[in-house]
Simulated assay, not measured.
Amino acid sequence: MSTPHRLKSVREGFRTKDNKKLSGINVAKQLGITPQYYYDIEKGERTLSAETASKLADIFHTTTDYLLGKTDVNIYDWVGIIEEGEFHGVKESSVPYMHEKELFNKSLELSNEDIKDTFEFKIDGRELTEEEYQRMIAAVRAERLYRDQNQK
């Protein structure tokens, strides 16, 4: 989905805490731009700047990657929303990727190599080296062994 279509779709599907829709005028006010400028962005007639994309992601509780169409999964649909230090739960809107969400929530049994090949592990924006990855796996196993031994 292109950015303009995604942006309009996200705005039209978004609900505030009071379960109200956000108008383009309201979004424009939050961004500090004119409504016409915002609607031009939504129609693809103006370029979406990184700063505006970041602000929109905050407003709509999504990621910039989702707004820009780089991913079709809005992570906030899965992990929940925290506003002003308070957890507000996951979005209960009709998530188009519900099947994937159900699969993700089920137990996933993968070998160490499958995990490494399937997922990208980054900390502080840097991908883990092979040694760091192996230490991470070893740390989880050691913690589990310790927990198992102390529960008996």
Rank of each mutant, 00 (worst) to 15 (best):
residue 115 I to W: 12
residue 36 Q to K: 12
residue 1 M to Y: 06
residue 69 G to M: 02
residue 20 K to G: 07
residue 49 S to E: 04
residue 76 Y to L: 15
residue 28 A to W: 07
residue 62 T to W: 04
residue 133 Y to E: 05
residue 118 T to V: 02
residue 129 T to A: 02
residue 13 G to E: 11
residue 85 G to R: 11
residue 130 E to F: 05
residue 139 A to N: 13
residue 127 E to P: 00
residue 142 A to W: 06
residue 39 Y to N: 11
residue 99 H to A: 15
residue 64 T to N: 05
residue 132 E to W: 03
residue 25 I to L: 10
residue 91 K to H: 10
residue 11 R to A: 05
residue 80 G to E: 00
residue 108 L to H: 04
residue 92 E to A: 10
residue 99 H to Y: 12
residue 49 S to Q: 07
residue 100 E to I: 10
residue 36 Q to T: 11
residue 127 E to K: 14
residue 86 E to H: 15
residue 130 E to P: 00
residue 98 M to F: 01
residue 126 R to G: 00
residue 35 P to A: 09
residue 98 M to E: 13
residue 152 K to A: 04
residue 75 I to Q: 09
residue 68 L to K: 13
residue 139 A to S: 15
residue 4 P to V: 01
residue 39 Y to L: 13
residue 6 R to V: 01
residue 109 E to V: 14
residue 79 V to H: 05
residue 73 V to W: 05
residue 96 P to S: 03
residue 40 D to V: 00
residue 119 F to V: 02
residue 112 N to T: 12
residue 97 Y to V: 10
residue 74 N to T: 04
residue 80 G to V: 00
residue 61 H to K: 13
residue 42 E to T: 03
residue 35 P to I: 01
residue 138 A to C: 00
residue 95 V to I: 12
residue 9 S to A: 09
residue 23 S to W: 08
residue 48 L to D: 01
residue 91 K to L: 10
residue 9 S to G: 03
residue 73 V to G: 02
residue 79 V to E: 09
residue 15 R to S: 07
residue 41 I to A: 07
residue 29 K to Y: 11
residue 96 P to H: 03
residue 118 T to N: 04
residue 92 E to W: 03
residue 32 G to P: 06
residue 41 I to V: 15
residue 4 P to A: 01
residue 110 L to E: 00
residue 51 E to T: 11
residue 59 I to Q: 07
residue 72 D to L: 02
residue 29 K to R: 15
residue 68 L to N: 13
residue 147 R to T: 10
residue 13 G to S: 14
residue 26 N to Y: 09
residue 25 I to F: 12
residue 10 V to E: 11
residue 98 M to C: 03
residue 45 E to S: 09
residue 22 L to S: 08
residue 7 L to H: 00
residue 45 E to A: 09
residue 49 S to H: 03
residue 11 R to F: 04
residue 72 D to K: 13
residue 124 D to C: 06
residue 94 S to Y: 05
residue 49 S to N: 02
residue 142 A to P: 01
residue 14 F to V: 01
residue 66 Y to S: 03
residue 41 I to W: 04
residue 63 T to C: 06
residue 62 T to G: 03
residue 85 G to L: 04
residue 140 V to G: 09
residue 139 A to W: 08
residue 57 A to E: 07
residue 118 T to E: 07
residue 35 P to M: 02
residue 24 G to M: 04
residue 26 N to F: 06
residue 145 L to A: 15
residue 92 E to Y: 08
residue 35 P to N: 09
residue 92 E to L: 12
residue 10 V to F: 05
residue 143 E to N: 15
residue 22 L to M: 13
residue 117 D to P: 00
residue 45 E to K: 14
residue 94 S to C: 03
residue 68 L to Q: 12
residue 18 D to Y: 12
residue 148 D to Y: 06
residue 26 N to T: 15
residue 92 E to G: 11
residue 85 G to I: 06
residue 41 I to M: 13
residue 52 T to H: 13
residue 2 S to R: 14
residue 120 E to L: 14
residue 52 T to A: 11
residue 133 Y to R: 03
